[in-house]
């Protein structure tokens, strides 16, 4: 028996669990738990350890499919998967959710995180959710990847469709296995696993402010738009609101006048007896937070980054 391995990775909700489940011949091992942080805005359950499935290509050949958890706080599992379970994988599939505000940021992030791992194996970029958000399109991906110096195959897939995921697997395996009857495998998967649109249901449940208020230590939040306008806020203290708006305007001024230093990412105000105030910029929006002074700066930054990543879609869905 010849065994191959493929590692699936990507952001939360990019479809890793769904992709593995759609082609696996065994009941997949998934380690979902109720999401406790920002991912709850996108779905109720998230993978906390790993996904695992097996696909039989014929009597002599099978593929082991491993999926990483999407959240960075389970990064230790990424290390474990790349150094142990899937250290000898033939390739890696990076699932990219096309509804993300900046899908290319995800590609840059994962290409860097898995840089060493990818030196020895092929990468396939599988773009998901393009039925919900068709842009960026295939040509834009090719152009951006060229700019990033990443030469790889890009495929637009529906993670629920076994034929699409099998196509990704074929792209990796066919270079070393020429005797596989891929049509036969595809027919078999459609018969056994089917293609259900109910397979995967992203849930858009919370507003940005609700999600912010569910973060540990957050006492208030304000979402600002491109023109420094207040999109929504639950900060009642007028002087705090004014202070945050002044700081937001400052970040714009610095970015204009001191562009040689780069963009202002965030400003944080702290004191021994006051709530921490912070302004986090993300392209055309800003998130202002009033937080318990006990919350550390790195935690604050992580919370804000997670929240801003989802905010545009959430506004759109609302």
């Amino acid at each position: 028996m010849k065994d191959y391995k493929i590692l699936f990775t990507g952001s939360v909700c990019s479809g890793k669990t769904t992709a593995i489940r759609s082609v696996s011949d065994i009941e997949t091992l998934d380690t979902d738990a109720q999401a406790s942080d920002v991912t709850v805005r996108r779905k109720k359950n998230t993978t906390i350890a790993m996904d695992y499935g097996v696909l039989d290509l014929n009597d002599d050949t099978r593929v082991h499919l491993y999926g990483t958890p999407g959240q960075e706080r389970f990064r230790f599992m990424w290390d474990m998967l790349t150094s142990e379970f899937a250290h000898d994988a033939i390739g890696m599939v990076l699932l990219v959710d096309n509804t993300r505000k900046d899908p290319f940021r995800d590609i840059r992030f994962y290409a860097k995180e898995f840089g060493d791992y990818l030196r020895q194996r092929r990468l396939i970029i599988a773009v998901t959710h393009s039925d919900v958000e068709p842009s960026p399109d295939y040509n834009r991906y090719l152009s951006e990847l060229k700019g990033l110096g990443v030469m790889t195959t890009v495929m637009f897939v529906d993670a629920r469709d076994p034929r699409a995921i099998l196509g990704v697997i074929e792209e990796l395996i066919s270079a070393v296995e020429r005797e596989i009857d891929w049509d036969k495998v595809s027919d078999r998967l459609l018969d056994t696993n089917g293609f259900s649109l109910d397979f995967y249901k992203p849930l858009y449940e919370e507003t940005l402010l609700d999600a912010a208020m569910n973060k540990r230590g957050v006492l208030g939040a304000m979402h600002l738009g491109d023109a420094h306008d207040v999109l929504c806020s639950n900060i009642d203290d007028a002087s705090v609101k004014t202070l945050l708006l002044n700081i937001d305007r400052l970040t714009g001024a610095i970015s204009d006048k001191a562009s040689f230093m780069g963009a202002v990412n965030n400003v944080v105000l702290a004191g021994p007896d006051v709530d921490t105030l912070s302004v986090f910029n993300d392209q055309n929006q800003a998130l202002c937070l009033r937080s318990d002074k006990a919350i550390s700066l790195p935690v604050l930054k992580q919370q804000a980054s997670d929240l801003l990543q989802w905010s545009i879609e959430n506004d759109y869905m609302a």
């Binding site: 202070l243 400052l250 202002v264 990412n265 400003v267 105000l269 004191g271």
Partner: peptide, 29 residues
């Protein structure tokens, strides 16, 4: 840049009558 930006921040803090004595501005790296 640091001088102008941080002085602006603390002037705004003084106006707001809040007791902040520490400010951090992350710009690029």
């Amino acid at each position: 840049v640091a001088k102008q930006a941080l002085m602006y921040v603390f002037r705004s803090v003084d106006k707001s009558d809040k007791d902040y004595d520490e400010a951090h501005i992350e710009i690029g790296d």
